[in-house]
Design a protein around this nucleic acid. Structure first.
Lengths: 338, 338
DNA sequence: TTTGTTTACGGAAACGTTTCCAAAGGCAAA
DNA sequence: TTTGCCTTTGGAAACGTTTCCGTAAACAAA
């Protein structure tokens, strides 16, 4: 069933059918109705490939996600998807492996599928961002450390200031009276989000006259997904063995979840023995016990903005903006005053 | 940069370039090398739309997921993705909303994108399956209750016997000495997985001479995603208020997570006061405290089989098979002997 | 040398759309 | 009635591939 068949059935030319389908203004209402009736009757659906081919570009936005196993991105994906749909874009989700090169994948996809735009989701790509500037289509970096965004003016970005918000989290711990504060940090070689959050931790300590004790810094295992519960568990376990502290800051909520387990296994209690603060604000945090205090990233706002920025780039060929949102401290039950 | 440009640059015809790219046997090795060198040099990537158009069908498999917010499906997605890639398929993930009709979405997608096949992931679609048999392309139902699969011989299916495995879970509780066992069940009108698991619960009770007490059956709220933590929390809370029991069976691990919270808030302890058993076996269960005893579905095996079945259907136009895996009881720390 | 067979290659048609262009018809103004 | 404009329509080209078909070249057999 092609457009030709419909044209024949409706007794009109193919161009008329095309016009009817695409809400072209230059068609008489009566003709349009007649055609659409046939279309409906025969369940005709235009071939996307032919359409894309002719239009020389598709209507597709690709979503590149590194670390789809992270609940945070999953939630982001939900919002972005909704937003993309409401603007009439097609979309495609592509999960990027931990060790794959994001810019070459982006390049390949964009040529192969003649994408209209690209949203890149996920941290862990600081230095590798540069390759992206060769991309022939607009793209926006979402959830990438604000600092990094500013260093790359040729990319539109939306995210938070990871260092600042990280310092905020640790600041809250300090204001609550904690002096020995451990951190479950990211991979050692992570040039982006993880590093920023670690920097924020250090800054908060020094600004508050506390010393930085290397034994309190737990770097993630390189062979385990960076922000995962498993990683949080492993790192926290080591930390508990080798150091004393009254509070621990996890750079992701999932890590905090693993941390909970490590603490329980060590026979300690949250928050009585150890206070825990997380980062991200995923829904699951509510259901931990005690419920997790965390810095929540405005997921929905970021998602909306990401699509908006991309849309600007596509429609108006606008300038590349950088939007930085604030995270918000959500105090629940996992931190205690000392 | 099109195939014509490459042909000109390489001093050959377009068909030769096409042959070189597609590993066609009818081309001299030297020519092939020469062409591929140019291809590489100019970073040429064939236009997917043109290719699909000409081939009259794409190489794309669509993954339809209902309930992508469920961690279980996310993990399945990971495995399926890997499997699809290794067989050289393109794939596309489409999240289906709670209230959308899966068969009309499937139909639309399959026409629009000229899909090669379809994998449908997720429960909650018992009765609505029938519309699918009109699909012009092969598809497999994954993670759909085995009973339902058998009722629909025109669909290939892979899953577990939800009723049986559910009875297994409850049986374990009974063997551990529990007599008053509550259930956090699915939506009342759920015709598929949820209903099967509830049926298994009832069967286990009666087979073991226990009475079915309606006050111990907690149906999910219809306005909350069926298998979510939030739902588990709400339902368990009500259950605790209105009835006495020593064990509770949650038809998903995420629900069990919500259940943990409700129990803690009620001032009770797991497993001392209430034992909890979940279903699915998602990774996160390990990190709950106490770690969650659950029935684990063989996610990886199911994913591999799903792709395999689909591949059979596509390649060999084979018959529609039904594969039923066994779930495995994973005993951890959330159930106590009484 | 001639003939036949095989191998390698180029040209062109076709896939199903969208869109440009030309033309036909209707209608208002003259 | 004639002229001209505007609306509506149909035909055909073009998008970038794959593949069929024909042919040239190379080689083997006679």
């Amino acid at each position: 069933m092609t457009i030709k068949d419909i044209a024949k059935l409706a007794g009109v030319g193919v161009s008329t059918v095309s016009r009817a389908i695409n809400d072209d203004p230059g068609i008489a209402l009566a003709t349009k109705k007649k055609v659409l009736k046939i279309v409906k009757e025969y369940n005709y659906i235009p071939n996307n490939s032919a359409r894309n081919l002719k239009m020389t570009e598709s209507n597709t936005i690709a979503l590149l996600v590194r670390g789809i196993d992270n609940y945070f991105f999953l939630e982001m994906f939900g919002y972005i998807q909704r937003e993309l749909e409401s603007r009439g874009y097609d979309y495609l989700l592509h999960a990027v492996g931990e060790d794959e090169d994001i810019s070459s994948i982006a390049m390949e996809l964009s040529m192969e599928k003649r994408l209209k735009g690209l949203i890149i989701l996920g941290g862990r790509m600081g230095s590798k961002i540069s390759g992206l500037s060769d991309l022939p289509i607009p793209y926006v970096l979402c959830t990438v450390a604000a600092k990094i965004g500013q260093d790359h003016p040729d990319a539109a970005t939306v995210g938070i200031d990871d260092e600042k918000e990280s310092a905020e989290a640790v600041g809250y711990l300090i204001r609550s009276g904690h002096k020995r504060i451990a951190i479950v940090a990211g991979h050692e070689d992570d040039p982006a989000v993880g590093a920023q959050r670690l920097a924020g931790y250090k800054r908060a300590l020094t600004e508050n006259g506390l010393e930085i004790d290397e034994s309190l810094i737990g770097l993630s295992k390189n062979n385990i997904p960076e922000f995962s519960a498993e990683n949080g568990y492993q790192v926290a376990k080591e930390l508990i063995q080798r150091a004393d502290f009254t509070a621990i800051y996890c750079i992701s909520d999932l890590m905090a979840m693993g941390c909970y387990k490590a603490i329980a296994e060590a026979g300690k209690k949250i928050p009585d023995d150890i206070s825990v603060i997380g980062f991200d604000g995923i829904d699951l945090g509510r259901f931990l016990h005690p419920s997790l205090t965390t810095m929540v990233q405005p997921r929905e706002e970021m998602a909306v903005s990401a699509v908006e920025l991309l849309n600007e780039l596509i429609e108006e060929n606008g300038i590349k903006r950088h939007i930085t949102y604030e995270a918000k401290l959500l105090t629940r039950d996992s931190v205690r005053r000392v």
